[in-house]
Nucleic acid binder design. Structure first.
Lengths: 245, 245
DNA sequence: CCCGTCTCTTGATCTGGGTCAAGGATGACC
DNA sequence: GGTCATCCTTGACCCAGATCAAGAGACGGG
């Protein structure tokens, strides 16, 4: 017999806590537990190729993965950035529509798709939670579309930094810890793929923001933000209120 | 007592057929029927402003609506194009994230949000169908991101025409009717907002595609496509197979 | 039929970001 | 500490698409 409270805590598997377990019942958990497994990937390794048959869904436990789309001539656009606790996979679809790649070493908590779908069809909470998560992703994708279609290179960079800062803050529940700083988990090239720019332009605009005192760098990947409002203004977002800190 | 078969047909209300009724039961339909109502909008009228409280969900019965986002300085990006049978609204959210505007005269079939959500929580099929629709939208948004971030103006125009042709074909179940032709339901400016371009560039690229024989125009809004494969090639999509015709 | 309003086209010019090219840092490994 | 590979920066130049501007259709209303 499973101990309910242990399962609600979910150990090192965020999906069960965040996506599935909120108001779970013991036997559902037991069934989930039976089909759950972990997979590790090395930095740079492709997890799923676009068009592949997908036989699992899951969530990121640690590390970072990206969702990208590539044209025949090599032009590449990132269409999703997966941080720990983010969900991957589409119940009801048999093939992947995009490449999923680990950009750092990565651990995922996976569920075989069939049993997961069966569970979903018998447990309304799961479908509802997934719907909520998918709607969040859709909103994020639409903000991203504004960025890609209408923002300048400088605004794109400022937006990316504030997006990462926000997700970071949400993830670590870090509160008003004085100075705000973020580690960029992406190379310049990955940022370029995220933003629809070239890596040279990314580099130039980061240098420009640094020169203008909007951000400062310690090493290539660590950014401090002396004035968050200033950064948000540079990002061209309409007032974002107290999302951060 | 409701006649089940009538409700499965759904009369003039596509949501009930497409989103809700697939495997419905009589009493669910009766409950839905009680909270269902129609609203008409004139061309150009704003249906919902971003940030507004949203007290209904629904689907487009006839006409066309757009989802747009606008920056303070007026730069504008379309982030959704709603054709008949498309769903609007986010169960679980209280405020709208984007402006919804009728670009033609429009009829929507609406459901008050509260009862719809209650129905959703008691009827697994509804949440599952909505999840499926939302995943479709997310896929479309991600294709759109590739277009916005990486395609040239010419590719963007060719993509837009093929997207509209595809949706049109799906909608009207039109089969190999000889020559392929589409009505563009958008002004040049709306196309520009869709594609992240200016209206002048849209006009120029349409002229160029016409000059090169990829499309031909009858009037400003009606496009014929002599060679679909040629158009898809211009759009830069990797092989789309027999999605059309 | 004329008038005003929208929508669309086309031309001339400008510029943000792409492209090409050359190094400079950084860090892992021997 | 040296070597190699990866990542990043900066400069010079160019071009696709934006901007500014003028005018041509299309169309509904009086």
């Amino acid at each position: 017999m499973h101990d309910h409270s242990v399962h609600v805590q979910c150990g090192d598997c965020p999906i069960r806590h965040r996506a599935v377990c909120a108001r779970c019942e013991t036997d559902e958990l037991a069934r989930l537990e039976q089909v759950k497994y972990y997979r590790s990937f090395q930095a740079g390794q492709t997890i799923i190729w676009s068009g592949d048959r997908m036989e699992f869904v899951g969530s990121v436990v640690s590390g970072i993965a990206t969702l990208t789309q590539t044209m025949e001539d090599g032009r590449r656009q990132m269409v999703g950035l997966l941080l720990p606790s983010d969900f991957v996979g589409r119940p009801g679809r048999s093939t992947a529509a995009f490449d999923v790649t680990a950009t750092t070493d990565l651990v995922m908590c996976c569920f075989r798709k069939k049993p997961f779908e069966e569970l979903m069809s018998t447990t309304p909470h799961i479908a509802q939670r997934l719907l909520e998560m998918t709607l969040d992703e859709l909103d994020a994708a639409r903000e991203w579309m504004l960025l890609l279609g209408r923002k300048t290179a400088r605004e794109k960079i400022a937006s990316l930094i504030s997006i990462i800062a926000r997700r970071d803050a949400a993830l670590h529940l870090r509160r008003a810890s004085g100075k705000l700083s973020v580690d960029l988990p992406l190379t310049r090239e990955e940022m370029a793929d995220y933003l629809g720019l070239t890596l040279e332009t990314v580099s130039r605009q980061i240098s420009a923001l640094k020169k203008d005192g909007v951000i400062s760098l310690e090493g290539n990947r660590h950014v401090s933000i002396p004035d968050l409002d200033r950064l948000l203004e540079e990002a061209g977002d309409d007032s974002d209120g107290g999302m951060l800190v």
